[in-house]
Design a protein around this nucleic acid. Structure first.
Lengths: 197, 197
DNA sequence: TTTCAAAACTAACACTTATTAGTTTTTTTA
DNA sequence: TAAAAAAACTAATAAGTGTTAGTTTTGAAA
């Protein structure tokens, strides 16, 4: 039938993962079959198994790669010398850039992680909880400083993260919103909501 | 094997829809089989077809019932005599109460609508677009009034709606956040972000 | 050009899917 | 209590699932 053509960037496994990501986002993980992925690449389904372990491994790779990027960035922010509000702003900007550069993967890691298998499911949800806790800790310090408005930090984290993950909806929306405009509006709304006046 | 036991509230179809909602939310629409639903009710899968048309009809009923509730409420708000910022606040409070009272259905209507079949898929996405446009129109009037901060109204709608839909994550989170506390924090953050100072 | 491994293929397996047909049981109505 | 209707059942269908086995093709190294 055909063969897997590798672009300049990466192995055949990465080609499969990228095509799969696109389908997982459009149709959902469960509704995407190995045959769908194979067809999109131009190959028969069993051929994929020369490069990957299982359909579930693809999902795992996507979710954990994204989780690592967020975790790594958070560690950097925690160590830098900036005010807590600036740290939050930095994190928000990073989320937005991730939504733009890694749209499909971030979407999947947000919406399809529940189809991970153990032990990865537990690992992943622990990482998420951990991420949220550390974000709440930054907010709490800002509140103690009086720099940040006295909101419940867990609620604020919830609001910020879900507001951010909603940018997903923007990409395909008819309204062409410029990325920079989006970012500045986002910062304005969320940071002004937090800032203590 | 058994039979469908109807509670005081509603037909057997409603019993099926309720059980299905719970499974659709936990496992996703595609990953939930008719046998899963039947087993949860205590009946064989083919028996369900005495009461429903198809698995897809269940999803359609869930999504359109919720869409109607949001649309009906929006119409009321549009007609009432209040400031535009108060209207937005009213809508935010309604979303929160919906998340609490109709958690499973709202979640599904947010996350599983893409599995709707035509013509319902098109109808549903049109309703969503329409809802967002009308929300943006309210914001625009508030901006013209100088009551609302000069943000891009489409971005603001995106942020508000996704922040709201993120409350889904709260229900099951370990942190037991009181509903009233959540609501007040949410209003504080979002409305203060919008208010022109 | 021969050799060898990587990567494609076809065929198939064992299972699950939503749904239909036809039949029996249960409940309601007369 | 007899008749009719509703709702359960079993059995089966046709299609689709992820994945494996075994074989052939392809491309690079010797």
């Amino acid at each position: 039938m055909g063969k897997i053509i590798i672009g300049k960037n990466g192995s055949k496994k990465e080609v499969i993962t990228r095509k799969a990501s696109s389908l997982f986002r459009k149709k959902g993980f469960t509704a995407t079959s190995m045959r769908d992925i194979a067809e999109a690449i131009g190959v028969e389904a069993p051929s994929l198994y020369n490069h990957i372990e299982s359909k579930n491994e693809i999902l795992k790779d996507i979710c954990f790669r994204i989780a690592k990027m967020f975790t790594d960035h958070l560690r950097e922010v925690e160590l830098c010398r900036k005010s807590n509000l600036e740290k939050i702003e930095n994190i928000i900007r990073f989320h937005i850039s991730m939504m733009i550069d890694e749209f499909e993967s971030v979407y999947i890691s947000d919406h399809e992680w529940k189809h991970l298998r153990e032990p990865f499911l537990t690992d992943f949800t622990n990482q998420r909880r951990n991420y949220r806790s550390r974000l709440a800790a930054i907010l709490q310090k800002g509140i103690d400083n009086k720099q940040i408005n006295a909101v419940n930090p867990y609620v604020a984290v919830l609001i910020i993260l879900s507001a951010l993950s909603g940018i997903e909806g923007w990409q395909k929306s008819g309204k062409k919103i410029d990325a920079k405009l989006l970012e500045e509006n986002m910062i304005k709304l969320l940071i002004e909501g937090l800032r203590n006046k």
